[in-house]
């Protein structure tokens, strides 16, 4: 008897639940611009793309008349479904994070011509009218930082100066950092006639700080003096190694001086890729009816989309600072090839 009672309760509950009907509260104020973000498989707390993008959305949610929501994708097959989820709920702008969503975004943009899309780290060729690519000339910031790192390496260990990196996965957005970084080191060698070596490891994972640390240590064992951690949490592991061994580090994406309390005192600077600012200004442009649909939002040195974080606790010699800022100007003016 008890069983049947339970089952009928269950049934009735389900009917009631489903019968609650379409009046589901969405938690958005009426009239707000609805902005949805679909993460890639890294998740919203990946210490990288997704997290920084979401930071921009959150800021827009607080400061503008915007209601921001996100869905985390658990798999490649989820991308289209999750975009559809927002599109069917009549969202005004859907931000998709990362080149992995390039395909799904294009398809869905075609399905929903009235919805605006923004995609991080991806540009369509030919462009799609309702999609704005949000890309970053990270190399513009990474190149001077490579130069800076080389300079600091010489400063630290003039006998055998070495610059290293701990990378996550070997994928283009990471490579963009690293290629320009290496070019920067080489440029330093050209300019100063030094022989700063450049070496690094890809851990093959964005979420492996323990491996990042072990491999960072290994790099330091082989003589690296400055470590750039590039690749989510794995890179942070590399910075932890630098901290433990008294070497210098360089952060990525945001000013990691603020996000890595443990390692902040060894950070020379960070290669900033201001996803949050980019997303914020794309949202702002939509509100102002200036949405760059079919075009690109390019984060560059010029518009502050990428840049160098301020120097904090590590002393950088005056002349090196000067050289770096000269290079920054040259890169911004397009006078130097960043190698990307």
């Amino acid at each position: 008897m008890r069983k049947y009672t339970l089952i009928s309760i269950l049934l009735v509950a389900l009917v009631l639940l489903s019968g609650c009907g379409p009046a589901l509260p969405e938690g958005c104020e009426k009239g707000d611009l609805k902005v949805g973000m679909v993460s890639d498989v890294g998740g919203i707390d990946d210490a990288s793309f997704n997290e920084n993008t979401w930071a921009g959305l959150e800021r827009a949610d607080e400061e503008l008349a915007v209601c921001a929501k996100f869905i985390e994708s658990q798999a490649q097959a989820d991308y289209e479904k999750n975009i559809t989820e927002f599109a069917e709920q009549d969202y005004d702008l859907i931000i998709t994070v990362g080149f992995l969503l390039g395909d799904a975004t294009a398809k869905m943009a075609e399905q929903y011509p009235d919805v605006n899309f923004g995609i991080i780290d991806f540009a369509y060729d030919p462009p799609i009218p309702n999609v704005a690519g949000i890309v970053f000339n990270v190399d513009e910031a990474s190149f001077p930082i490579g130069y800076l790192a080389a300079g600091m390496a010489v400063e630290q260990d003039s006998d055998d100066p070495q610059v290293g990196y701990v990378g996550g996965m070997q994928i283009p957005p990471v490579e963009q950092f690293i290629v320009a970084y290496e070019a920067g080191v080489n440029y330093y060698n050209e300019q100063h006639g030094t022989d700063v070596k450049f070496k690094g490891v890809y851990v093959g994972d964005f979420e492996a700080p323990d491996q990042g640390k072990i491999q960072g240590n290994s790099l330091i064992d082989e003589g690296a003096d400055v470590i750039m951690g590039c690749g989510g949490k794995t890179g942070n592991g590399g910075l932890a190694a630098a901290k433990e061994r008294g070497k210098l580090g360089i952060g990525v994406d945001v000013d990691q001086y603020n996000t890595l309390p443990n390692e902040k005192d060894i950070l020379i600077t960070s290669t900033m890729k201001r996803l949050d600012n980019a997303v914020y200004s794309v949202i702002e442009s939509l509100i102002n009816d200036e949405f760059p649909g079919g075009g690109l939002y390019i984060g560059a040195l010029a518009n502050g989309g990428v840049g160098l974080a301020p120097y904090h606790d590590v002393d950088v010699p005056e002349d090196l600072q000067q050289e770096v800022s000269d290079i920054l100007n040259a890169v911004e003016a397009g006078e130097l090839d960043t190698g990307w």
Partner: peptide, 12 residues
Amino acid sequence: LTHNIALGFSAG
């Protein structure tokens, strides 16, 4: 569904 395979296909 996806008509291709990309990094991060694994879904558990």
